[in-house]
Amino acid sequence: MAGRKRHTPEEIIRKLRKADELAARDTDVDEIARQLGISTATLYNWRKQYGGMKADDAKRLKELDAENKRLKRLLAEAELEKDALREIAKGKLVSPAAKRRAVTMLQLRLGCSQRFACLVVGQHRSTQRKPPAQATPADPDSGVREWLRDWAKSHPRKGYRRAWAALRAEGMVINRKKVHRLWREEGLRVPQRRRRKRTGTTTAPISEASAPNDVWAIDFQFDTTADGRTFKIASMVDEHTRESLLNIVDRSITADDLIVALTAVIARRGTAPTVLRCDNGPELISRALNNFCEGRIGIDYIPPGSPWRNGYIESFNNRLRDECLNLNVFRSILEARVVISDWKQTYNHSHRHSALNYLTPIEYAATCQPHTKAA
């Protein structure tokens, strides 16, 4: 008889998160335990030891979820009205679909007849009455539309270009403009977050990585667990292949911790970088790190207050914040380690970069020739 399986804390955290998802769908506790491959008593013991939602919390979460859906629906309706008004005011009624929306809005808002609304908008009445292809059972693009909706749910902060690249990777031959049209028709556009424009002029040329392991960029960012305590995240990317190389998540990260992790990365890749690009943080300007890098790794410190000089890692940190940290609530530092580590693994194997011809970092790294450093 096979022995009992002992779960690691990381596996327990993942299964508890899966249990929360099943509980939110009103799944019975016994069924949740069965799907997780454990007993009901084990599930209760895990929740008691590692934390979890109480019945009142689950009920409140369900109420908040219903309220959130209602508010989203109201917001979508309000945005649709604003779009129609804006299109009519600016005269940008180009497509039949836009004209169809404008006609419907005029009928509802002003109570005018369909004949009059079509005359004002310039829409033929037969076009207005004929349902669009996506609203009919014979829609030839129904499969692609369903795929795009499912993909957008799994990747809420990615746009149509990467959806098109994922379709192409699965073997589907489809035009990018068609994906863009279907993406817009399904209302899957990702809201753009406006950033302030930076001022200042670069006074020195920025070194570029021409091969793997030329330049590794490193930086830190912070987040908090559910109890309000801060934790620190250390990330590092290869500027040429865009691979995520480092994963340290802890309440505090010292220069010695960083050196141990860098040593492990160098051993795993079989070579040290030519340049380590970083800012002027206390861990990075420490004597310990400088002694570690002396004679074999150059350190490129960016000027204070110039994060754009370290653009690759800043872009990676922004994506980590947008697609992982902002979408999760961490109940413990252990859960944060597990979730962030899993996200970085998924990033390396699934995120398709437009600058890499829509290859993932791992796929692109496999196409690179081994880089030999000059003596």
Score class of each variant (00 low, 15 high):
Arg251Ser: 12
Leu284Asp: 00
Glu283Trp: 09
Gly298Asp: 14
Gly270Ser: 07
Asn291Asp: 12
Val237Ala: 03
Gly295Val: 10
Asp256Ser: 13
Thr271Val: 14
Arg251Gln: 10
Leu188Gly: 04
Glu294Lys: 14
Leu188Glu: 05
Asp223Lys: 04
Arg194Lys: 15
Pro273Ala: 08
Glu208Cys: 00
Trp216Leu: 04
Leu188Phe: 05
Ala234Gln: 09
Lys177Cys: 10
Asn213Arg: 06
Ile299Ser: 04
Leu246Val: 09
Arg296Gly: 09
Glu294Val: 03
Leu182Gln: 02
Lys177Gln: 12
Arg268Glu: 08
Ser210Val: 08
Leu276Tyr: 04
Phe292Asn: 04
Val237Ser: 01
Ala234Pro: 04
Asn290Phe: 12
Leu188Cys: 07
Ala267Arg: 14
Ala288Trp: 01
Asp250Trp: 10
Pro303Glu: 08
Val275Gln: 03
Arg287Gln: 15
Pro212Lys: 10
Ile206Ser: 13
Ala264Gly: 07
Leu284Arg: 03
Arg296Lys: 15
Phe220Asn: 07
Ile285Glu: 05
Leu188Asn: 05
Ala209His: 04
Asn280Cys: 13
Val249Lys: 05
Asn280Gln: 15
Arg181Glu: 09
Asn291Pro: 00
Glu239Val: 09
Ile253Val: 14
Leu188Arg: 01
Arg296Cys: 10
Ala255Ile: 09
Arg287Val: 12
Arg198Gln: 14
Arg194Ile: 09
Ile299Lys: 06
